[in-house]
Amino acid sequence: MADLAWKSQGRTRRSTRTVRVAVSTVSTVTVAAVALAVLLVPPLVQLDQQAVDLSMKLRPPSLAHPFGTDDVGRDLLLRCVYGLRVSLLVGLVAALAATVIGTVVGAAAAVSGGWTDRALMRLVDTFSSVPHLLLGIFVVAMFRPGVWPVIVSVALTHWLSTARIVRSEVLSLRSRPYIDAAISGGATRWRVAARHLLPGVLPQAGLAAVLMVPHAMWHESALSFLGLGLPTHQASLGNLVQSARGSLLAGDWWPTLFPGLFLIIPTLAVAGLAGAWRERLNPRRRSELML
């Protein structure tokens, strides 16, 4: 067949595909760089992020201090990396907790149906009707400032959407004939849930969890910015922006800009990665050969 002139007849335009590949590559590289930075810099780089040098305070970016220094002369690049580390940790743990709560509540509502379903979903509606930040503030206000109250606050306000997603997904899967066939084949409720429903829901829940990490980081930063989050001595991105507010008014832009970028860039990268993942989850794209 080598002598035939094969012509491409794909529906997807090449430019769209190139853009898609570029976005997912850039996102992957960024996420990898962020992960490497927060994992490797603190143990490998023997510099103290808290080292104060009052003779160097509020210097603009230079070779020695690429991100400049803050109002007590600490290196901002180092502070940002440490801040990102704390914010990311809070974001990851909180997103994981929120996803577990959301999946359990959503699956329980869908599987039990009836009154349990209605009660759980009204609970979700009630929680959703209160602004997240307000609810979060309420939770942290009950504890002393620290990492755990912030994580609890984020987790308790972010499981709602996951619960909705998981519930509707389980409901749609449950009406498929293959569930009927499994029941007819002797499967218990538990086996249907574990073998057929959960594996169908997990990709969606995982996607929601990944997208929730930057969301949780923003929430943490917002709390810290308001002075309700992490204690001020702990460098988190929110704390960095908060403590640099004063210098911004004086015209010093770098102490707020760089922590802000450290928040925005990972957010965009995670969103890009999640988009690529969603594309791969689409079962129609998975089957390459149409038969």
Partner: peptide
């Protein structure tokens, strides 16, 4: 109909009412 997935290639010719279908642009 030009509805093949992206990993498909065609060869030969299919002309309908004067228009070549294979390899035609979207």
């Amino acid at each position: 109909l030009g509805l093949l997935p992206a990993n498909a290639r065609t060869a030969g010719s299919a002309v309908v009412d004067g228009v070549e279908l294979l390899g035609a642009g979207e």
